[in-house]
Design a binder for these strands. Structure first.
Lengths: 128, 128
DNA sequence: GTATCACCTGGAGTTAACTCAAAGTCAAGG
DNA sequence: CCTTGACTTTGAGTTAACTCCAGGTGATAC
């Protein structure tokens, strides 16, 4: 699959896909004879994984390390799991923090709601 | 309260606090006669609010707009609520996305777990 | 066959959000 | 009195993660 189609399918720009490759996040994208990128099924799975992880805010640096470990084969399984465990914990606390902010937002919205209703009543009263 | 104490209490650097003021996010910090910042109770509440919103990823630009509306008084209540509603919805979907990533991470960790256990068994077997 | 278009590379530019540095002021301690 | 240390301002530097650009190549449509 060529870069434009991958870009379309995953919502990442071609520039971003090339950038990911440049920095070692997607090191193994296959090419046609004339040098055009031709993403394999495995490449696509990796794009999907990276997209998912990035959307949750995992730093690129961490993902590069993870991908390098994958390249090194089975002996790195524990190290890879360790990375995922760390990132899982970080993500868990980020979600908790965001949930707290969400609660505060909802609380404030409610207060504004009452405030606005109060104002309307007041205006209706004035018009009587 | 002086800047160093505010910095300490909220875990934001003095540079960051001054930066927030510079860009209009904390426009009303009171000063002593000699020009030293002396954060009022209201200032502290705002720092706390901003810190909370920033930690959830709300863009500074949005928070500046919100603060400007506050400065403009009661006539902007609807507009302020509108901003909070939008950000609430954005935050809700970001949390949902992160939750999906968290699920995937947990799934992968589990697979690694099985894999590692399998390897250990294999090794134990080899040693028999 | 030539024009167009997607692709390529290397390098530079952008954006958000800080973060640091230089040069100066002021209050308190010795 | 003078040094120290926290404060001030303005402006520049940094980091992460893209994003864009110029100049070039190769395949396809007319």
């Amino acid at each position: 699959m060529k870069i434009a189609e991958v870009s379309e399918r995953y919502g990442l720009s071609s520039d971003t896909l090339r950038y990911y490759e440049r920095i070692g996040l997607l090191p193994t994208v296959t090419r046609t004879e004339s040098g055009i990128r031709d993403y394999s099924e495995l490449d696509l799975q990796r794009v999907d994984f990276i997209k998912c992880m990035r959307s949750a805010g995992l730093p690129i640096e961490v993902l590069i390390d993870y991908m390098e470990l994958i390249e090194q084969g089975d002996s790195t399984i524990e190290a890879r799991q360790q990375i995922l465990l760390e990132q899982r914990d970080l993500l868990t606390s980020r979600i908790a923090e965001m949930q707290k902010t969400l609660d505060l937002l909802n609380h404030k919205i409610e207060i504004y709601e009452k405030n606005i209703l109060g104002k309307e009543k007041e205006m209706a009263h004035e018009q009587e």
